[in-house]
């Protein structure tokens, strides 16, 4: 025998209460777990500097080390508590790919990295620029590299190269070797600069990060 309309409505209201609770817990804007290294990277350091300056302006003088420790303890305690509260809902969220993490440009990147691809052709004497983001004259594979799913693999990852970025550079090299028989070597790298505000002195820093060179002979026979 099926449920009566009233019982059906009650069961649905109960299920929705549980679903809202789970998604509500996931939506709590809690910090990520932090390490001292993260906090001392360029962006983190600049943010700490500004917070300390602002607190000093408000009459609170804190030592940098103390402030960093306080931030670490607070962030990691909140993160651990959040992880604990999410645990009962995690199996469903994982299998369904659902979630409520909406940190859209939460911390604007003052040290952006611009992707570049250099190639060395047969008989060549130097590297030639084949791709540079936002450079219409050097646009090899530009449509692929601007696709959001591919951008996700290198944007924010170049400075701290992870497996996916390394795989991407290998894959790009193979794709170029497959379509350009005259190319002997490919190097994928980032070019890091410092975005300063109009009210700040310009910083001419322009540094190559995470260069990943590839030789054709090492990719022979590999899938493109």
């Amino acid at each position: 025998m099926g449920l009566s309309p009233r019982h059906h409505a009650v069961v649905r209201a109960g299920c929705l209460a549980v679903a809202l609770l789970g998604h509500g817990i996931y939506a709590l804007p809690m910090p990520r777990s932090l390490t001292l290294e993260t906090l001392r990277e360029e962006d983190g350091r600049e943010n700490v500097d500004r917070w300390l300056g602002w607190l000093r302006g408000a009459g609170l003088t804190l030592q940098r080390d103390d402030f960093e420790q306080w931030v670490l303890v607070a962030a990691n305690t909140l993160h651990d508590g959040h992880t604990w509260a999410k645990a009962p809902f995690k199996p469903w969220m994982d299998v369904s790919g659902n979630g409520q993490s909406w940190g859209l440009f939460a911390v604007p990147d003052r040290w952006p990295v611009r992707l570049e691809i250099l190639v060395w052709t047969t008989g060549g004497t130097e590297w030639t620029l084949a791709y540079r983001r936002l450079d219409a004259e050097h646009d090899l594979l530009a449509d692929v590299l601007s696709y959001r799913r591919i951008r996700g693999i290198y944007d924010g990852q170049i400075g701290k190269p992870r497996a996916a970025y390394k795989n991407l550079t290998r894959w790009l090299a193979r794709r170029i070797f497959a379509t350009h028989p005259d190319v002997e070597r490919v190097q994928v790298q980032g070019r890091k600069s410092h975005t300063t505000l109009p009210t700040e002195p310009a910083d001419p820093k322009d540094e190559v990060v995470s260069p990943r060179p590839h030789r054709r002979e090492n990719h022979a026979g590999g899938a493109p």
Partner: peptide, 12 residues
Amino acid sequence: WTAGLQKVGLEW
């Protein structure tokens, strides 16, 4: 709303 709450970068 939570995207706003998580904008912790001082530039915001």
